[in-house]
Design a binder for these strands. Sequence first.
DNA 1: TCAGCTTCCTGATATAGATCAAGGTTTTTC
DNA 2: GAAAAACCTTGATCTATATCAGGAAGCTGA
Lengths: 253, 253
Amino acid sequence: MSISSAPSRFSSKLTSQCQNCSLSALCLPIALADEDINKLDQIIERKRPLKKGDILFHQGQTFDSVFAVRSGTLKTFNITASGEEQITGFYCPSELVGLSGIDNNAYPITAKALETTTVCEIPFSHLENLSSQIPSLKHQLFRVMSRKISDDQQMMVLLGKKNADEKVASFLLNLSTRFKKRGYSATSFRLAMSRGEVGNYLGLAVETVSRVMTRFQKNALIEVDGKEITIINLAQMQKLVGIADDCGRIADI
Amino acid sequence: MSISSAPSRFSSKLTSQCQNCSLSALCLPIALADEDINKLDQIIERKRPLKKGDILFHQGQTFDSVFAVRSGTLKTFNITASGEEQITGFYCPSELVGLSGIDNNAYPITAKALETTTVCEIPFSHLENLSSQIPSLKHQLFRVMSRKISDDQQMMVLLGKKNADEKVASFLLNLSTRFKKRGYSATSFRLAMSRGEVGNYLGLAVETVSRVMTRFQKNALIEVDGKEITIINLAQMQKLVGIADDCGRIADI
DNA sequence: TCAGCTTCCTGATATAGATCAAGGTTTTTC
DNA sequence: GAAAAACCTTGATCTATATCAGGAAGCTGA
């Protein structure tokens, strides 16, 4: 099978199916019967890759689809009154982006590729119809949205209560967990985003992010080589973030 | 009709219906046909009032219902590793609380009454089933969850990028908007939460909240009398928050 | 009605992290 | 493959807001 060439950037269909997708166990198809995956498959459009810096959708643009990341990484952000960019999330493969657009029929944020990225486009009206026929799909959709709400609330705790060290440690561990879930190494990975983007997301200045990482390296918590990060002392990092240790108690550093 | 007395705090059914509820235009029933409102009505349980300080559900408790606030105010919070409370939201009449519990079948936060508060309990499994039969109910549910995601993202922008003045002004204007939507005054209202709770929510110290409010009063932006707040100079407050003025441009103070 | 909490306000001081500055490194572009 | 641009790091300084402290005002319950 070959990739068909297409006139417009976003109009080509790449030949691929949910059934064969290595992400299906993490993405929407989870818990769907084969025949139901087929139905889902039929409403999904595979897109040509986005290049670094390409925009998937713009803040204010009419909402009609949610997107599942297949490879690469996206960031979402909105532009504040003073014209600055505020990053609200990073999206890894199997994660769904665009759900916040349902309410007003317009995306309240912009989504931009941090590197070469491919996505599946899922027209929401079709997904909604399909979800009436397939209760487990509907449930999965509710779960995904619910999880997004929980995650965002954790992010509020981070922004409101944590200091710079805790923020950076939380960020790295969060990425670690997401990579691990996808079968990649939990301790060694490459950041798709710049220090500036990390800082923006965490409510810190670039310099602070840089300093904290350098200090973590000096203290042998992590090893940093440009964008390559290796977590050396996972237990200590978890302690820093306040994750309960294996005794069930809460670490107090 | 009379209110039946009941043995346990949460088991009584108060006689009331979505049809007669003044909040139905803001709550889930919006856009439902009369017969559908009836069906929704049948799965909803009205509860006896919560007293100030009563807990509606606990962090970690098994999830089975979402709740619509009918009167009063709730706060939701979670307890951080270091034992502090981090408030993640305040809930006014017609607002739905508990949606973040769907994902893991457990509430990730605690919900507590800030004053005497009544809620409608909506068992989620029933709601989910009903939503398959009533597409507009399903759509409304998606919308409510989507809006929650957008709102939380705005909150992240607030926590990550705004200074103390902007945070307090945003908070007051946000409340103002919510009161207005419910038919109350947009410029004069009573805070159900303490300064400490406001600070906790906004990522500020109590003292800072107090100082900012005092300064706003000195500058004739608002009038403060304990928990009673009157917004005097709405335009200036909006400018402070960075809301686009009527010319469509962005205010730059 | 008063004693004892809790909340609120205000001033003084401390500090985490921002900002400014500048040099080095990596990535992109042509 | 060289030049330009973007990004990263490190040090010095500044500042917004936290923290500490104490007193006033409101509630609460006997």
